[in-house]
Design a protein around this nucleic acid. Structure first.
Lengths: 343, 343
DNA sequence: GTGAAAGCGCTAACAT
DNA sequence: ATGTTAGCGCTTTCAC
C-alpha cells in the first residue's frame, strides 16, 4: 500500500496542510508540538514518502540534473566515466538526481532531440553538456531562455556560457616542448577531432612549442584519430606507409597513444627507442603496459565535481563568481619517451 | 515563454481535451482532420512540449528507470560502465530515461537510503540493481510490493527475482581446467569478494575443476582482492611472502589480474614463464600490454541491453518468459598462460 | 495553530 | 467530433 498525504491527514485527524507543514518543516512554528508529534508518528508508522512528482508539479523543480553524452558508448572509457563519477557524487551529496542522456541515435529521432526533449519536458533543472554533438545555437538558445547549462571541456567563443575547462593549449605545449627538449624535430600530433575547440586549442599549443624550438610546422604531421583506437591506428599506419620521417607522436588521448604504440610495434619500430609517444589525460596508467605511458594528468573526477557544484549554484540562482574554471594538466614522464636516434 | 496545453487550446480555439488527443495521438479518429491540423500548427509554432511531470502525476508513470550502483566510482572502470552503456542504449531507444543512483555514502544518509527514496518517491518505474550493497531483504520487499526490480550478475537463492546473469561457475571452471590441462597443480584463485554470490559460484567452479584433475583444494590458495588493484596486489604480495608454492593465478577480474602481473614482476617472477595469470570479463584487452591477458570474455554490453529490455517488460506488466537470462563466458587464450616449469 | 480551497498541467470518463 | 469536469498528490494563500 502506498500512502498519500491525504491518508496521513485522515489517520492523524488533521488537515493535509498540517501534514505538509511538518513534512517540509515549513512554518513549523505555527504547528502545535503535540500535533507535530502525532503526525510524525503516523508518517513513521506508515513509512510514508511524499510523491515527488506532485511536489515537482507545484514547485516546478525536479531536483535532477541531466548529463548529456554524445553516445552512451562514451560511458565506457575512462575519460567520460571519471567526469560522470565526479558529477554523480556531488549531485547525490546535494540531494539531486542524475539523468544520463544521449544526444545521438535515438530511434526515429534526429540528433539531440532526445536530450532537448528531456529539458523541455522539465524533467531536469539543468544540463551538464559533455557532448560535442550539441550545436552552439542550441546551447545558446537554452542559455538565453535562462535554462541552467554548463559545458565541460568545451566552450563557446565570445559567449559567457559557464564552462569547466582544462588548459588544452598548455597541455600540448608542455608535451611538445618536452619532446623538443629531448631533441625531437619531427613530431606528429595525433589529434582527436580538429573541429572540436579542444583540439584546436591543443593544436595551438603544439604550434607554439614548435615555433619556440625553431621547428617548422607542417600540417601533414597533424593526424586525426577521433579518440578511437582503430581510427588512430589507421591514421598512423597510413602516415607511416607514406614514408614520412618522424621520431615522436603526441596523442590527444591515452587510448590513441596506445593505438600508436601498437601500430609502431607492428611496423617494427620500437617505443621509445625509435619513436617516442605521449598521451593525454593520464587515465589509463597501467604498470603492466610496456612501455609505461608518458601523459598529461588531468583531475577528471574533480572537474566533474566542479561541474556539478557549479550547475547547482546556477540552478539556485546564485551569482556565479567565475564563468570559467580552468584545470591545469600536469606532465607525467614515464618510459614511452626518450631522446631520438642520432641518425 | 513556456506554454501549457491550456495556452495551446486557447490559441487554437479548441478545448484542452482536443489538444491532449492530438498530442497523444489517442482517440485521434474522433478528431476532425482540420481541427487536428490547426492544433498541430500551433504546437509547432509555439514549440510546445508537454510537461512530463504533470503527465506523470496522472498516469503514475515516470518513464524512467534507475540503475543502482554501489559507489559512483564504479562508473569508472569497464565492468559497470559497459553494462550501463548497454542499459542506457535500450532505455533511450524505448523512450525511457536513466537515473543513476548510488547506494552508499550520501551525506547524512545511511546505506542505500538515497536509492530507496528515489524508488519510494515514485521517481522511477523500476530499478536495475548492479550494487551488492543493497541487501536481499530490501530487494524482496520491493518485489513483494510489485515494484519492478531486476538484478544483474547477482541473484537471490530460492527466490524468483528476475536476474541477468553470467555463468560464473562455468567461467572459473573453464579457466581452472585449462590451467590444469597445461600442467599446473598449485593454482591460486584471486577472488573479488567471497561474500558475493558471484564469487561463491566462481569458487565452486574452481573447486570442481580441481577435483576433476585430482588436485586437492586448499583454502589458503583462495585470496580476496575486492576487485581493486591495490587490494589484489597486497593480497598476492602477502601470499608470496609466506613462501607458498604456486604456478598460476586465476583472477576474478582483469584489473586484479593486472595487479597480479605487476606484483609478480616486482617479485622477479616472470609471466607466464614462472607464473600463469588469467583474468575475468576480458574488458581490458590492450595489445600494448605485455604479456597480453588470457581472460573470460563476457558480453557485458549485451547483458546491459538484456537487463533494460527485461525491466521494460516487467514494467509493462508483460509475462516474463524467463526469470533468468544466463550469458556464457568464453575463454580467450593469450600470452599470459603457459605450461609450468618442470621443477 | 489549523483547515479549506485553489491550482500546478495534464488525462480520461462522461456529456453533448 | 468536441467540450466539460473531476481528479492525480502536493503547496500555498487566506480564513477562522
Amino acid at each position: 500500500m502506498t500512502y498519500t498525504c491525504k491518508d496521513i491527514a485522515r489517520k492523524t485527524g488533521v488537515s493535509i496542510s498540517t501534514v505538509s507543514r511538518v513534512l517540509n518543516k515549513k512554518d513549523l512554528h505555527k504547528v502545535g508540538e503535540r500535533t507535530r508529534k502525532k503526525v510524525e508518528k503516523i508518517i513513521k508508522k506508515t513509512n510514508y514518502t511524499p510523491n515527488i512528482i506532485a511536489k515537482s508539479l507545484v514547485s516546478k523543480k525536479s531536483f535532477s540534473v541531466a548529463v548529456a553524452l554524445e553516445d552512451f558508448k562514451d560511458v565506457v572509457g575512462p575519460y567520460f566515466s571519471q567526469i560522470i563519477s565526479g558529477i554523480a557524487y556531488v549531485l547525490q551529496e546535494n540531494g539531486y538526481y542524475l539523468q544520463l542522456l544521449g544526444t545521438v541515435s535515438a530511434k526515429n529521432k534526429p540528433l539531440s532531440q532526445h536530450y532537448l526533449q528531456a529539458v523541455k519536458e522539465r524533467r531536469v533543472d539543468g544540463v551538464i553538456i559533455l557532448s560535442e554533438a550539441i550545436n552552439e545555437k542550441e546551447i545558446l538558445g537554452l542559455w538565453k531562455d535562462k535554462f541552467p547549462v554548463l559545458l565541460v571541456n568545451r566552450y563557446i567563443r565570445d559567449k559567457e556560457i559557464p564552462s569547466v575547462l582544462m588548459d588544452n593549449e598548455k597541455g600540448l605545449y608542455d608535451v611538445t616542448s618536452e619532446l623538443a627538449k629531448l631533441g625531437h624535430r619531427k613530431i606528429v600530433f595525433m589529434a582527436g577531432c580538429l573541429k572540436y575547440q579542444l583540439d584546436q586549442d591543443r593544436l595551438k599549443g603544439y604550434k607554439k612549442a614548435l615555433k619556440e624550438n625553431n621547428i617548422e610546422f607542417d600540417e601533414k604531421y597533424v593526424l586525426e584519430g577521433y579518440f578511437k583506437y582503430e581510427n588512430a591506428a589507421n591514421a598512423l599506419n597510413v602516415f607511416i606507409s607514406q614514408g614520412k620521417k618522424f621520431s615522436a607522436v603526441a596523442a590527444s588521448d591515452d587510448v590513441m597513444a596506445f593505438a600508436c604504440i601498437t601500430t609502431l610495434k607492428k611496423n617494427n619500430l620500437s617505443v621509445p627507442a625509435d619513436v617516442s609517444v605521449t598521451g593525454f589525460n593520464d587515465m589509463l596508467f597501467l604498470p603492466a603496459v610496456n612501455p609505461t605511458l608518458t601523459s598529461l594528468k588531468v583531475p577528471l573526477i574533480d572537474m566533474g565535481k566542479e561541474a556539478a557544484a557549479k550547475i547547482l549554484e546556477i540552478i539556485d540562482g546564485k551569482q556565479i563568481p567565475d564563468i570559467v574554471s580552468l584545470f591545469k594538466p600536469q606532465l607525467v614522464k614515464r618510459q614511452s619517451i626518450s631522446s631520438p636516434h642520432a641518425d
